[in-house]
């Protein structure tokens, strides 16, 4: 038996919004310690890893490890029927083929129960190696979203260059070019830790997709090392994270 109750559906909506653009279907791996998800996009260019500890939930019970295969678009449709301040309980019996979602209004005078068909997804998990990132940048999540949006107007490719002076985002296309540089600020909303400078090129389309997680957190953490995937991490309150890994473009 798996049962988890969140006091606010808004958080679940934000999490699913952060995933559904890049993953249409995915498996939630539920265990005693919490809920995990790991999946690649269809093109195998990026990988999403989510972790939500059990103490995020008002009530959490998971008697045995369970994998719940979900169609995230269908889950979005169900979540649209709920109000953000509803409490939500998700429940599944062992070996069940359905997930139950119950929404309870804040005034507790309305309950709505939904059943969502579970999918049998054959999902492979990748081993993510421990990486000592040469550059780690923290910045406001809204600033990162704005930069990704603005650069994608110019080019499909985005170059991210990180030095001790700051982080620079560049795009160069037919209509012209753009360079946006952020330096470390004294008020601490942008911080840049650099062991060695790194410059890598990425597909802007994916960076834009990652910024769907912006409502989850004020800050985003960007980590880079030479010739390894970029890591873009959004914390989920104090209870977990969504990490997006993006393979760099390589010179032909």
């Amino acid at each position: 038996m798996f049962e988890a109750r969140l006091s606010s559906t808004a958080l679940l909506k934000k999490i699913v919004d952060a995933l559904k653009e890049i993953l249409h279907q995915s498996t939630l791996d539920c265990s005693d310690s919490g809920i995990q998800l790991q999946a690649m996009d269809n093109s195998h260019v990026s990988l999403v890893s989510m972790s939500l500890r059990s103490d995020c939930f008002e009530k959490y019970r998971c008697d045995r490890n369970l994998s719940l295969g979900l169609d995230l678009r269908s889950l979005t449709k169900v979540l649209k029927c709920a109000s953000g301040d509803d409490a939500v309980t998700i429940k599944s019996a062992d070996k069940a083929d359905k997930l139950q979602l119950s929404f309870e209004s804040a005034s507790m005078d309305r309950t709505a129960d939904y059943e969502l068909r579970l999918l049998n997804l054959d999902q492979e998990h990748l081993a993510i190696p421990e990486t000592d990132y040469a550059c780690v940048v923290h910045m406001p999540a809204t600033e990162f979203a704005r930069i990704c949006r603005d650069l994608s107007t110019f080019s499909e490719s985005v170059v991210i260059a990180c030095t001790k002076d700051g982080i620079k985002f560049s795009a160069n296309g037919e209509m012209g070019s753009v360079n946006i540089k952020l330096s470390e600020t004294s008020k601490g909303d942008v911080s840049v830790q650099v062991e060695e400078p790194v410059t890598l090129s990425f597909a802007g389309r994916y960076l834009n997709t990652f910024t769907r997680a912006t409502p989850l957190s004020e800050k985003v953490k960007i980590s880079m090392a030479p010739e390894v995937p970029l890591l873009v991490e959004y914390p989920i309150e104090d209870y977990g994270y969504i990490r997006y890994y993006l393979a760099p473009k390589v010179d032909e």
Binding site: P129, V228, P229, Y245, P248, D251
Partner: peptide
């Protein structure tokens, strides 16, 4: 000219 790398060339199957 650059081409898009695959995430599976960095992370291997468990």
């Amino acid at each position: 000219k650059s081409k898009q790398g695959s995430i599976t060339s960095f992370f291997t199957k468990k």
